[in-house]
Write a protein that binds this DNA or RNA. Structure first.
Length: 368
RNA sequence: GCGGCUAUGGUGAAGUGGUUAACACGGUAGAUUGUGGUUCUAUUAUGCGUGGGUUCGAUUCCCACUAGUCGCC
């Protein structure tokens, strides 16, 4: 079971400093979770993750359900042992795959009909099944099965969807048996303030160990996304951890921390890395650009990541990408994750020193 | 030396006597937010070996030259 302690509430904003204790380790919040959908953070070993300062990672129910299958992971002794990783893990419920893989007509009260992206076979996921799978996977934190609707949908559709997600949350909580695992509820409601508020209040009534804000970064403008947070966050209990799902743009993280969010996950740093993009304090750069052909400087002077510290140049990393060498993606994955994880500890430090807003303003001023 | 064949962008190549020269790769740039790792989008030949000729008009037809290639001596 997890234990969240709110250590400090910033005076200059809703930003907060906290500690999350889990069986596999304790870490400070705000924190970012690298995504390891298929029981691995792509291209990295567990040791490398640890060296990056990664505190907790995310894996995915749907994907592990299909491959290698829950029984294999259970037989291995659970997800931690299976993937040879000794830190905290959170599993997503498969709700996002409702958004990315299922069609609206395949969503019913009972559950969601999927077509496997691997072999096309018909699959059916229910709130009960999503919890049962996660119970067997054995992550430290598991998520309710929710519907993550696309943007935009009509008010009426969202109204029904929010109600359904609440019933699913209730059904999931009822069958959750593994007491070692924390279970989080998920707030939905799209851009409709009234529904966000309702979803938050009703989800809290059901009672969870932590609360997530879902249904963001699905195509809406940034302003709308920030509004979605504003519309529900005050209805989430201060003493429970708050998780904004699927957000990883540095600016978005800062905006959310400012509003009172504690943890994040996102594929962005790792996916961008595999597509030759690197985070820097001035914004993103694309290493495939011709301008780096003869640039023998590191990605960012002063960066403490392995890639920059050991001297890999932009010209060399560009060459690796041009030749399709996998080392390029690895070097940028290390850099991008370190960039975000350092951002999180910088944020923690700023809150602790009562300088969050100053830090926020400085960062945004430099990051284009 | 003689005879045959071929000459289209960075590459492999389609194609036509008449507005914007197909397609693929490569190049250039953009996208990517609870990951379907090798994806998507845009853009990329003011020119069809060189010089003449025929024609209202030639990358397309004719001639010469040049280069490549195959065969023969």
């Amino acid at each position: 079971m997890i234990d969240f302690t709110l250590k400090k509430q910033a005076a200059d904003s809703n930003a907060r400093l906290g500690t999350l204790k889990t069986e596999y380790g304790t870490f400070a919040t705000p924190m970012f979770m690298p995504v390891g959908t298929l029981a691995n953070v792509k291209t990295l070993t567990s040791l490398e993750l640890k060296e990056l300062g990664s505190a907790i990672i995310l894996a995915n129910t749907y994907h592990l359900w299909l491959r290698p299958g829950v029984d294999v992971i259970f037989a291995a002794g659970g997800l931690h042992k299976f993937m040879n990783y000794q830190g905290p893990i959170l599993t997503d419920s498969g709700g996002y795959q409702v958004f990315s893989l299922a069609k609206p007509k395949d969503i019913t009260e009972e559950g969601v009909k999927f077509k496997s992206h691997i072999d096309g076979q018909q699959l059916f996921l229910t709130p009960e099944k999503a919890i049962a799978i996660q119970n067997k996977l054995g992550a430290d934190i598991i998520m309710s099965f929710d519907e993550c609707p696309p943007f935009p949908v009509s008010y009426d559709y969202m109204n029904d969807s929010v109600a359904r997600t609440l019933r699913w949350a209730q059904r999931g909580k009822k069958v959750h048996k593994n007491e070692k695992q924390a279970l989080f509820g998920i707030v939905q409601g799209g851009e409709f303030g009234k529904l966000r508020k309702y979803s938050a209040i009703e989800t809290v009534k059901i009672g969870f160990d932590g609360y997530a804000i879902g249904g963001v970064s699905v195509g809406e403008d940034k302003k709308i996304m920030y509004q979605m947070i504003d519309d529900c966050i005050d209805y989430l209990p201060k003493e429970k951890i708050r998780y904004l799902m699927g957000v990883g743009e540095p600016i978005d993280i800062l905006e959310a921390v400012k509003r009172g969010v504690d943890i994040f996950d996102c594929v962005l740093p790792t996916r961008l890395a595999r597509h030759a993009n690197a985070f820097t304090l001035k914004g993103r750069i694309n290493l495939k650009n011709a301008q780096y052909q003869n640039d023998f400087n590191v990605l960012e002077t002063g960066c403490d990541c392995y890639t920059c510290q050991s001297g890999y140049s932009k010209a060399y990393i560009r060459h690796l990408f041009v030749c399709n060498e996998t080392l390029g993606g690895r070097l940028l994955t290390i850099h991008n994750l370190r960039f975000l994880l350092r951002l999180m500890t910088d944020i923690q430090k700023a809150i602790a020193e009562d300088k969050f807003l100053t830090f926020y303003n400085n960062f945004i001023k430099n990051y284009n």
